[in-house]
Write a protein that binds this DNA or RNA. Structure first.
Length: 581
RNA sequence: GGGGUUGUAGUUCAGUUGGUUAGAACGCCGGCCUGUCACGCCGGAGGCCGCGGGUUCGAGUCCCGUCGACCCCGCCA
């Protein structure tokens, strides 16, 4: 039996044709002398009909159950006007069965193969092969494929070569925890799975490959989240002779093409925002611009104010910050108190002030502060009638982070995170280094191969913490979907950075010696970026977890519920690998 | 590592102040039914109440522990 059409293909034009459909029994409707079966495949659902003129055939049809795999030979027939099903793409026709072949039986599935079936995620993950049959995942996985195809074609058209890099590679114990693979041949030694092909792609630039791209799997042994899996897929990009603008100029049109896959037009160039501004105004290095509500600094109002608490915080170098909630008329006093109490439970003190629709001011500021100060605050923050301002005082960093979280929570509650809105943003000018107070030393914010900003070279010796990096993150709707940098191509500068990071020559040699040596053989200036494919596709699909766009994701405990991995192994295997548990 | 939500039939859930035989819907099985499409109607089966311990005359319900799922913080150069 050879398939002539998919189950989503037949239309009135096909009436009279003899066709063969292959697929799964989606639903059976047995009316006694008449039997309808919906046959489903990746493309859709088609109704087939058994009449009782052929008793043997009817009897065979009546034995069909959900998810049996069948082949159907028959003639396409137009449905009468009353029996057309407008919910089906193929609903104007049906196939009158002439021959039925049972290709395979199926156990009764634990959940029905429809999107409306409510199933807990552990059941879905255990029976992932059934979950994958459902329209939602079929659509998501199909979308993922189309995005990957667009990406490959785009980079090919722009002169990039897709080059594979090793999966078994060298552990570089900075950054995330490595997944290790023991070497059988070399007792006591290990490969690591790549956290990203960082060094290899840079060496490809040394190797004159000029433009590299790879849709590659990366591995990080860290705790999971809705947007983090231990293995995930990056669109990894590296270009010789690149400046940040070169990278933006390649990625922005790519995003246009990717979003065209779901029929969305996005505007380029994307907004750019220095890291410092993102932190101050949105309390995050990956701000979601959709809900508005920027954080405002109102410290000057309180420098000489009658509000002693705020005044002394400002005097000690702290700050006072606020966000204004629009359309807050619906917020009852108890709702506002609820928000304040929630913050209080986390040890954070939140004040508020509002203007009612009639202009009346109310606030949680102490009486002694006075109405005039509250009015100034509302004026300064632009809080209009029907709006509400939340205010917090303290260290700049803490206040911003707190208000940043609050604004996201409020936005979520108020439904301000439009699912059809795409707010792209380049966050630029990241600090090169961040101070680790415990270890009392600097760490790379991005990675140790990131080039310092041209204007900040002089600061390297004097004030390393103030040096900006030529690093950039691509942020979409509050999700970090990519990050990259221009790299150091000069081995002397690379050594300088290592010494700032307190990595000794010997240590650097041990960890990245091969890479440092490569830098000495005529390395072109270069830079790149890595985009998180899973996160990108999740946003395109409107999913809140990347598990919904991966065929075989792991649980929050990093377990594959279907395959049952990880699992113990034979003593023999351990012995060969020179391992003892 | 920490915080929160959660676990009862195949699935999703209900289950009162601790009290007879643990319910519903869908699914499943059987019967009837010639225009259904979430077919309908009639009947039936189906439970280690996650697991272990404790309190109690008595535990799905209370207590302790443990395991799994999800979300968040830490972590993720």
């Amino acid at each position: 039996m050879t398939r002539t059409h998919t189950c989503g293909a037949l239309r009135p034009d096909d009436v009279g044709a003899d066709v063969v459909l292959l697929g799964w029994v989606h639903r059976v409707r047995d009316l006694g002398g008449l039997l309808f079966v919906d046959v489903r495949d990746r493309a859709g659902v088609t109704q087939i009909v058994f009449g009782n003129d052929d008793e043997a055939l009817m009897a065979k049809g009546k034995r069909l159950r959900s998810e049996y795999v069948i082949g159907v030979e028959g003639r396409v027939q137009r449905r009468s006007a009353e029996t057309v099903n407008p919910k089906l793409e193929t609903g104007e026709v049906e196939v009158v069965v002439r021959k039925l072949t049972l290709l395979n039986e199926a156990k009764t599935p634990p959940f029905s193969i429809t999107d409306d079936a409510q199933v807990s995620e552990d059941v879905r993950l255990k029976y992932r092969y059934l979950d994958l049959r459902r329209p939602r995942l079929q659509a998501n996985i199909g979308l993922r494929h189309r995005v990957m195809t667009v990406v490959r074609n785009y980079f090919d058209a722009n002169g990039f070569w897709e080059i594979e890099t090793p999966i078994l590679t060298k552990s570089t114990p900075e950054g995330a925890r490595d997944y290790l693979v023991p070497s059988r041949v070399h007792p006591g030694e290990f490969f690591a799975l790549p956290q990203s092909p960082q060094l290899f792609k840079q060496i490809l630039m040394v190797g004159g490959m000029d433009r590299y791209v790879q849709i590659c799997r990366c591995f990080r042994d860290e705790d999971l989240r809705a947007d983090r899996q231990p293995e995930f897929t990056q669109i990894d990009v590296e270009m010789s002779f690149a400046r940040p603008e070169t990278i933006f100029g390649i990625i922005e049109p790519l995003m246009r093409e990717v979003f065209a896959v779901i029929g969305k037009k996005i505007t380029t160039p994307f907004q750019r925002m220095p890291y410092a501004e993102a932190m101050a105004v949105y309390g995050s290095d990956k701000p979601d611009l959709r809900p508005g509500m920027p954080i405002q600094d109102v410290r000057e109002l309180f420098r000489e104010s009658s509000f002693g608490v705020f005044k002394s915080i400002v005097a000690e170098g702290g700050t006072v910050r606020a966000i204004v909630v629009p359309d807050a008329a619906s917020y009852s006093r108890s709702a506002v108190d609820g928000i304040v109490n929630q913050e209080k439970a986390q040890g954070r003190h939140l004040l508020w002030a509002r203007r009612a629709d009639d202009g009346t001011m109310t606030s949680s500021f102490p009486k002694a502060v006075g109405e005039e100060t509250v009015r100034q605050l509302l004026d300064a923050t632009g809080t209009e009638k029907g709006q509400l301002a939340f205010v917090v005082a303290g260290e700049p960093d803490t206040t911003s982070k707190m208000l940043g979280q609050l604004r996201l929570n409020l936005a979520k509650q108020k439904g301000l995170l439009g699912n059809d809105e795409y707010a792209f943003l380049w966050v630029v000018d990241f600090p090169l280094l961040e101070w680790d107070p415990e270890a009392k030393r600097y760490n790379s914010m991005h990675h140790p191969f990131t080039s310092p900003h041209d204007d900040d070279h002089a600061l390297l010796a004097k004030e390393p913490g103030a040096v900006r990096a030529k690093a950039y993150d691509l942020v979409l709707n509050g999700s970090e979907i990519g990050g990259g940098s221009i790299r150091i191509h000069d081995s002397a500068q690379q050594s300088q950075i290592f010494s700032l990071l307190n990595i000794s020559k010997e240590e650097a040699q041990l960890r990245f010696g091969f890479f440092l040596e490569a830098l000495e053989y005529g390395t072109p200036p270069h830079g790149g970026i890595a985009l998180g494919l899973d996160r990108m596709v999740a946003i395109l699909a409107g999913e809140s977890s990347i598990r919904e766009v991966m065929a075989f994701p792991k649980t929050a405990a990093a377990i594959d519920l279907m395959a049952g991995a990880p699992s113990p192994v034979d003593a023999k295997q351990l012995k060969e690998l020179h391992l003892k548990i």
